[in-house]
Nucleic acid binder design. Structure first.
Lengths: 130, 130
DNA sequence: TTAATTGCAAACGGTTTGCCACGTT
DNA sequence: AACGTGGCAAACCGTTTGCAATTAA
């Protein structure tokens, strides 16, 4: 998707986006980013957000989480960790269990060569339980 | 999505779909199912496929796999197992590692209540390696 | 200067929905 | 007969793309 032969420029928009992503513990989607950048960039367009998300992802600065059925979410925390998806409120939480380390270091993958691993728990979150 | 108060009927189309899903080791998307049912149901429409996938999913007979960026895939193997997603050929493979059993039985999930768990490895598959 | 990037608008593609006829129970 | 379901077409919505103007290097 991103052409690595290009000399990337450090755009205000892209810089701002990455900071925004790093500053939140949420796992925003493209539209959330768009809305939260409008203050700083009143003429911002959604396509810019999408294009920059693609660039950041291909640079490995951002992780794309595909949440079943709906829109993708993005996470600037690129450390190895799992996610918990609440089917009630649709929020995504970080989960730090012991499995993902084992899973990622696992090379017993039926002969395939894994590069990364996403562990997603699904259920009801703490907040929705009460 | 599916109304559980309804008395579901056993339609030819739905029965056939489930058999088709069970008969393949692939992880088909809606369109694959559509194409492979056209022989038996020449007037079949895509929306029927989608509606029945929703019903089967809510009955727990089928698992929905969300593959980043593109379309969803479905799996009639509802046993606990992981998936390997090849970024080259975009195929999805079943992987039977030891982790998922541990992961699903894990209740140390930051206070949330997990009901299921999807482990997805991403990388290059055996076939594309050679 | 020049090539990457932006904003805009239109296209795209997978999925959902409204409607009415059909077929299972 | 009653009502869940199918087919059809249009709507939906998140995402991508073409293009001319802008801007970082």
């Amino acid at each position: 998707m991103a052409d690595t032969s290009k000399a990337l420029r450090n755009t205000k928009q892209r810089k701002y986006m990455l900071e925004l992503l790093k500053s939140t513990k949420q796992h925003p989607n493209a539209f959330w980013l768009y809305e939260n950048m409008l203050g700083a960039f009143p003429r911002l367009s959604l396509s810019t957000v999408y294009r920059n998300l693609g660039i950041l992802e291909s640079q490995g600065l951002v992780q794309r989480l595909s949440c079943s059925g709906s829109f993708d979410r993005y996470d600037a925390d690129i450390s190895v960790h799992s996610h918990f998806y609440c089917k009630e409120c649709r929020k995504v939480y970080d989960v730090d269990s012991a499995f993902e380390k084992m899973a990622v270091s696992n090379i017993e993958c039926g002969g395939h060569r894994p590069e990364s691993c996403q562990i997603t728990f699904m259920g009801t979150c703490m907040q929705c339980l009460s």
